[in-house]
Simulated scan of single mutants.
Amino acid sequence: MLWVKTLHILFVVSWFAGLFYLPRIFVNLAQTTDASTRETLLGMAQRLYRFMTPLGVLALILGLILWLGYGIGQGQIWMHAKLCGVLGLLAFHIACRHHLRVFSNGSSRHSHRYFRWFNEIPVLLLLLILIFVVVKPF
C-alpha cells in the first residue's frame, strides 16, 4: 500500500504543477499581441495540457485503488468532502481544456485579469483538500 500511496502523491503533485502553470500561460496569452509569441505560448500550453492529463488520470486511478482497494476513508465525512474537492479539480482541468481550445481558435474574450483569478482556483482547491485529509474537520 505504501508504494501505491507514494505514487499517488507523486502524480498528484505533478498534476498540480500543470494545474498551477497552465493558467499562468493563459494570462500571458491574454496579454500578448505579438503573433510569434502567441504561437509559442499556445504551443507550450498545448504540450503542457497533453503532459498533465495522463498525470491526473494516474493520480485518480491510484486514489481509487487506495479508496476502494484498501478502504481508506470509506464511510467518513472528510473523504466525501475531499472527493468533492477532487471533482472540482476535474472540472477545473476540463475548464482549462475549454480555454485552450478557445485560445487555439483565436476567440478568447477574457482578459488577463480573469485568468489571474482563474489561476487561484487550484490553490484554493488544494488548500481545502489538504484540510480535509490532514485536519479531518468532520
Score class of each variant (00 low, 15 high):
H93S: 03
G43D: 06
Q46A: 13
W78C: 02
G43E: 00
P122V: 09
V102N: 04
L64A: 15
H98V: 15
P23H: 07
T6L: 14
Q74D: 05
F132S: 01
Y114N: 07
H110S: 13
S14C: 03
V102Q: 11
L126R: 11
L128T: 13
G63D: 04
R50K: 14
W3V: 10
T40V: 09
T37S: 13
K5Q: 13
S108E: 15
L60S: 08
V4I: 15
Q31N: 11
F132G: 05
L128F: 00
L60D: 09
L87T: 06
V13L: 07
G73W: 06
S104M: 09
L58A: 03
G63L: 00
P54E: 10
F92M: 04
L130G: 05
N119P: 09
D34E: 15
A35D: 11
L89C: 07
Q76R: 12
T6M: 13
A81I: 12
P122Q: 12
L89G: 02
P122N: 13
V133W: 11
M1A: 10
A95N: 13
I129H: 04
I94L: 15
G63A: 01
F132V: 00
L58H: 09
I77Y: 12
M44C: 10
L130V: 08
K136T: 02
I129T: 01
G73K: 10
H99S: 13
S107D: 09
S107W: 08
L89P: 02
G56I: 01
A45T: 07
L124G: 09
F92V: 00
F103V: 00
H80K: 10
Y21Q: 06
L90T: 14
R101C: 15
C96P: 01
L125M: 00
F103I: 06
L89K: 05
P23T: 02
H8C: 00
G69A: 02
I121E: 08
A30L: 10
S36Y: 11
V27C: 11
A91T: 01
F92L: 04
A95P: 15
